[in-house]
Amino acid sequence: MVKVDGTNNKDALIRVRDLDKKYHRGSEVIDVLQGLNLDVSVGDFVAFMGPSGSGKTTLLNLLGGLDVPSDGTITVAGEQINRMSGRVLSAWRARHVGFVFQMYNLIPVLTAFQNVELPLLLTKLSKSDRRRHVETALSIVGLSDRMQHYPRQLSGGQEQRVAIARAIVADPTFLLCDEPTGDLDRKSADEIMDLLVRLIGEHRKTILMVTHDPRAAERAQSVLHLEKGALVEAHR
């Protein structure tokens, strides 16, 4: 269940309270997020929408522990991540978060297999275990036959599927997707959305996604709008 009013939801996986994020540009202070509340449960698929510059990426970065809030708390599975820093946060990210970006962000000199394997290099898994996990992840995204391809040998949609395989390979607690279909054509975008929906349905993942695309947003269980630094539920 997704809530944005700050009332407690006892089975929330992610709980955000009074989140503030300010940027300083010279003497100017930009209040991007102001008193934002959010509760997300396991298995939820949330879409964030809003005009460009409204703070969607900023919100995902904070939820993923890539940046620290100016104020407020973020609790994930009982751990307050806004208090973590450096090493601890790195380890926490590796364990709990899978990221998918608009521009795929694959390493061009590594094969699809090696790209997906990257997060596993930080674990204690043996080589054969890593291979098994990578193969499973690539088969979920339907790219078992492209394992030895380099990113430049893949289409945009395929690259994004490799990126999704990389995001799920270490079995993270939740996925953060920042405009995952923003750079894709209609058909590839639909395939990516099909895949994300399947991850929710078949693999019981939790997904928070930023999108501009109403068709993509439709596929989510709940759509939230970012307005004046806070989230509001969309009226369908």
Partner: peptide
């Protein structure tokens, strides 16, 4: 730059 950021995103520490 971007790739190094990706490595950090998936959990590579600064020291790594």
């Amino acid at each position: 730059t971007g790739e190094l950021a990706v490595l950090k995103t998936v959990g590579f520490t600064d020291r790594a």
